[in-house]
């Protein structure tokens, strides 16, 4: 971490934390003008954006997943691109390719055209409809923040965030994301149906003549500054231990794994899960007005972080076990982090 972003004194830290919360609230309020309900999803997306991770949104069609991401792009003044994944899409359609361009003198030159992946906010719509070959084209971009095409390597500009959506119901003709790619997503957020009270507001905003226009309330620089602030939040040892125990608790055969995990899980979370827990908890701690991470911050982000990193076994699928149930079991099993250690 760069030391110049680290607040040196308590006053600076308080000021940075205060600015963090203000900016966050401004962005959230602006996005909420377009998105009705789905407060948890908006908070999750913003938390992942500020923690420097990518988000996988899962929900049935028509719940506003695409609109949420596009609204975020407009409110934060980030470059936004959308990729609609289809089975016939090729990696070059994502990363870009060299094309012949008229040079104006009657000739043609080979010129590289960047693909839609080169943007701050990338909406990968229905990512599970693309073939694994195309899906893997996203791997390098998501992890290394760069794209390699031929001999050319393009560094992606920060803040870079991929927000992918997938439909959990219509699975025919889809290619489920491999574990390696799922692990790259910081959060997996489940977009549910809005509440009854939200329906009226949705209808009023979307069926009237008045069109909601979002203002740019923040910038890429603000987002980067917020990321640095979040990373500066210290994590006490007992909280780190708690995060490690939770991640190990998802691994069958571990000492911290509950009986449910041992029975139904074939693959638990990787160390990336612990990293994601800590990063998400740092943002949560700042939003809660604290200057250090607490166990409750870890618990707050446990489900979005761990639910897609747990691979159910044969028996787990047949019994209808969900990964959320497993995360709940892990949380309950490791409730007393210090109690067992002392």
């Amino acid at each position: 971490m760069n030391d110049k972003h680290q607040p040196a004194t308590a006053d600076e830290a308080r000021a940075a934390a205060s600015k963090f919360r203000e900016t966050y609230e401004t962005i959230r309020a602006e996005v909420s003008r377009m998105m009705v309900g789905q407060e948890e999803v908006i908070e999750g997306v913003l938390t992942a954006l500020l923690a420097g991770g990518h988000v996988l949104l899962e929900g049935v069609p028509g719940l506003g997943k695409t609109m949420l991401v596009s609204s975020l792009g407009r409110a934060v003044d980030l470059s936004f691109s959308r990729i609609q994944f289809t089975p016939d899409m090729m990696p070059a359609d994502v990363r870009g390719s060299s094309v012949l361009v008229d040079d104006g003198r009657g000739g043609h030159t080979l010129q590289f055209e960047e693909g839609p992946i080169v943007a701050h906010l990338v909406l990968a719509d229905e990512i599970n409809r693309a073939t694994p070959k195309t899906q893997s084209a996203m791997l390098e971009a998501m992890q290394e923040r760069q794209v390699s095409v031929g001999r050319r390597t393009i560094q992606l500009e920060e803040p870079f965030c991929v927000m992918a959506t997938q439909n959990p119901v219509e699975q025919e003709g889809t290619y489920p994301l491999p574990e390696a790619q799922l692990d790259r997503f910081l959060f997996k957020l489940v977009v549910g149906y809005p509440k009854e009270s939200d329906y009226k507001e949705i209808l009023a905003r979307t069926t009237g003549d008045h069109e909601v226009e979002l203002k740019k309330v923040s910038s890429a620089a603000d987002i980067l500054a917020m990321r640095h602030t979040a990373r500066a939040v210290p994590v006490p040892q007992h909280v780190q231990d708690y995060a490690v125990r939770l991640v190990m608790g998802t691994q069958p055969g571990s000492a911290y794994a509950p009986e449910l995990v041992d029975r139904f899980v074939s693959l638990g979370s990787s160390p990336r899960g612990a990293q994601a827990l800590i990063l998400g908890a740092k943002v949560k701690a700042l939003l809660q007005g604290r200057f250090s991470v607490a166990e409750e911050d870890i618990r707050a982000v446990a489900k979005p972080v761990l639910r897609h990193r747990i691979l159910l076994g044969f028996q787990g699928q047949s019994e209808g076990i969900t990964t959320d149930q497993l995360v709940d079991a892990v949380l309950a099993h490791n409730q007393e982090a210090l109690g067992a250690r002392a």
Partner: peptide, 16 residues
């Protein structure tokens, strides 16, 4: 815990 070790930044001081 922060008091038992040398302070690493402003956030720890603020936490104390």
């Amino acid at each position: 815990e922060f008091l038992r070790r040398p302070l690493a930044g402003g956030f720890e001081a603020a936490a104390i």
